[in-house]
């Protein structure tokens, strides 16, 4: 186990690199597959010192469900944002909202920040230095508490399940 752990320090990164390589080469010949496998194993192994703490992904099904939900939300949110942009500017109610984080894992926080930037009319502007609050700019908000609770139940709860190491330390 530890031997494999040393040889393949970041299985998810390896899988991702392999997928990207196949997409880039755009064919499935044995030579491409072999080169992809070599790179997917070699790059994480040679650069392992730069990734000291691999994020541990658990419950991949929850992650897939979250991914599916996020894709749906991106499309839905874009209709909203398009209507907001095309509508009258005076009706918009922009605001900065502070979002108290329950996640502690840095990778999980950056995933959440990316999801927030891509979905409803919100952009993550900053993370506090102690990694406990996100500063979010909202294009049009009626009730800030509702926004915070939506983000918490829709995106942060699944992320807490996917990255369980952050649950114990918080």
């Amino acid at each position: 186990m530890t031997f494999w752990r040393k040889l393949v320090p970041h299985p998810w990164l390896s899988l991702f690199l392999f997928g990207v390589w196949q997409l880039l080469m755009n064919d499935l010949s044995p030579a491409t597959l072999a080169a992809g496998a070599l790179l997917a194993l070699g790059i994480p192994f040679l650069t392992r010192r730069f990734w000291p703490d691999p994020p541990r992904l658990q419950k991949p099904f929850v992650a897939l469900k979250l991914l599916w939900r996020v894709i749906g939300d991106i499309i839905a949110a874009n209709w909203q944002v398009a209507l907001l942009i095309l509508g009258p500017v005076k009706k918009l109610r922009p605001a900065f909202v502070c979002y108290p984080l329950a996640l502690t894992d840095p990778f999980a926080i950056s995933v959440l920040a990316s999801i927030i930037s891509l979905t409803p009319g919100t952009v993550t502007a900053d993370v506090s230095p102690d990694h406990q609050t996100l500063l979010i700019h909202v294009l049009d908000v009626a009730d800030e508490r509702e926004l915070i609770s939506t983000i918490r139940t829709r995106y942060e709860q699944p992320l807490l399940e996917v990255f369980p190491c952050s649950k114990t330390s918080s």
């Binding site: 874009n78 942009i85 891509l118 009319g121």
Partner: peptide
């Protein structure tokens, strides 16, 4: 058309990307 920088940020990050 949006009036300040932070509001302008919303257009390119979401609509243009999608």
């Amino acid at each position: 058309k949006l009036p300040d920088f932070f509001m302008r940020l919303h257009g390119p990050t979401k609509a243009t990307t999608l």
